[in-house]
Design a protein around this nucleic acid. Structure first.
Lengths: 227, 227
DNA sequence: ACCCGATAGCCTCACTCCGACGAGAAGCGG
DNA sequence: CCGCTTCTCGTCGGAGTGAGGCTATCGGGT
């Protein structure tokens, strides 16, 4: 079999929304290369693992197993990165994976959720992987119901709207947003309970419905046409 | 560095439209395993290559270098496949790449363009890679201008419509389709020439414009909501 | 020469969806 | 009780789309 041999790793772009900001899980490296730099969490694919197995295992390890067990959250493959010089130790191919999770308690050890805007200078080519993950997440909110993956099991329409606003860094009219999401069949399932204690009229709580696609999609700003 | 070592290959899903049918480029394997089975064209990543380099090199090799030089055509990364048992020779990670090309002359040697509907029983997990590539292409026609990548440099609105109909296996109203694509800024650039010789009123020729995104998208049948 | 079928291209109409916005409902704090 | 906030429902106009009528312009048959 011709061709060089690669070490194959999985790097995770774990996104969540905290205090109305899109945040990513980073770990501070304790070894060379890039010692003490921030990097995406990840690890090497073991002997009997498929790529998704590695991604799920790393996600459970880095965030606490409880989250992975729950049905909530979303994990999907992002892209492969294999530039010849991306790792000084040798040829490493890294599969990026994108995870969308509800807000979690602060992680243990050398890991933290940081706002994606403040992140720069990650180890290896992780800046690029992070950018690709954020762009994928932004695009997927347009035509899927994945925004609910950022929310806990029960949430309000305003919670969901703040997810869109944080991920897209835009403002959305609450009244039109409410009409859009509540009139999409299978997106939201109303529950009997309401939330009290906050300001204003108590909102209704919803659970995620079975719909995965949004037809028609929720449109961001139309991109300007390059001329 | 922990972890097993992998051979890394690139497999191409080369799609084109021939005689109003979506076709894929396949090669008949001349060696074991899967000897004499059809498979996707591909090859191993060499020492100083990035994944895209390998994909472009293989595409040029399999279709004739002239096509690759031309600006037309489209090549993008699809997904990574690394199931532990996907290759009996050992651990091989394969990056799928998706190429969309105008119709080409029949390839040399053990290669051929076959209609995707007739394709079954490919080597390795190439059935799965092909299915992912076709689904990606179908989805991308909805919200990008990539359908033009299936057309030659100059083409008519009907040519473009037949691309959509072949890829989606649907029928589209020619009048509404014409309104949609000609009113999207930057999608089509009219040329001075017209086509004569066919039946009916001679159509106008267009070139691809600079637009890459379709806002709003061209909608297929809305998917039924699972309940 | 003439008609006919086929394709291209333009137009209208009704409907849906969306953005902008008004207004009522229902909580909280002073 | 009064303002303030947030939730929720309605209204209105414009954009986009499916359905379909109509004309323009070719090749081919009679």
């Amino acid at each position: 079999m011709r061709g060089n041999l690669f070490a194959v790793a999985v790097d995770l772009v774990v996104l969540t929304v905290r205090r109305d900001q899109l945040c990513v899980l980073l770990v501070r490296r304790g070894e060379r290369p890039y010692e003490s730099h921030w990097s995406l969490p990840g690890g090497f694919v073991q002997a009997d693992e498929d790529l998704g197995d590695t991604a799920a295992r790393e996600l459970a390890t880095q965030t606490g197993a409880a989250t992975q067990d729950a049905v909530q959250g979303h994990l999907e493959q992002l892209a492969g990165y294999a530039a010849p010089d991306r790792d000084p130790r040798g040829r490493v191919l890294s599969m990026g994976y994108l995870a969308l999770l509800p807000d979690l308690p602060d992680p243990q050890g050398a890991a933290a959720f940081l706002p994606v805007e403040d992140v720069y200078g990650l180890a290896f080519d992780h800046d690029r992987i992070l950018a690709d993950g954020v762009e994928r997440a932004r695009a997927k909110l347009e035509y899927t119901t994945l925004a609910a993956a950022f929310c806990p099991a029960e949430f309000t329409v305003s919670d969901l709207r703040r997810v869109y606003e944080a991920v897209w860094r835009t403002e959305i009219d609450p009244r039109n947003f409410q009409r859009k999401v509540t009139s999409t069949p299978g997106f939201l399932i109303p529950t009997a309970t309401r939330v009290t204690g906050g300001r204003g009229r108590p909102p209704q709580l919803f659970r995620r419905g079975p719909a995965t696609a949004l037809h028609p999609p929720m449109l961001r700003e139309p991109l300007p046409v390059p001329v």
